[in-house]
Amino acid sequence: MCTVGGGPTGDLNFDERVKGKKYRCNECGEKFESISKKPVCASCQSEDVTAL
C-alpha cells in the first residue's frame, strides 16, 4: 500500500486494481471489505468474522 501524505492520503487507482472480499463480524455485525488474507473487523478489531 503506497499512499502520499500530508495527512495519510493517496491517489491510488485503487478500486480498479484491488479486489477485496466482503466479511461480516460475528461479534458486532459490522460488514466490511478486506484486502487481507487474515481479515479483522474494521470496527471492533475482532478476528471472528465470516466471509459473505
Partner: peptide, 20 residues
Amino acid sequence: PLIVLPKDHPGSKRFSYLVS
C-alpha cells in the same frame, strides 16, 4: 484511515511523504 484520491487528482502533487 488512509484516504485515497482519484487518479490524476490535482491534490496529489502536494504530498511529499508516502506511506506503505
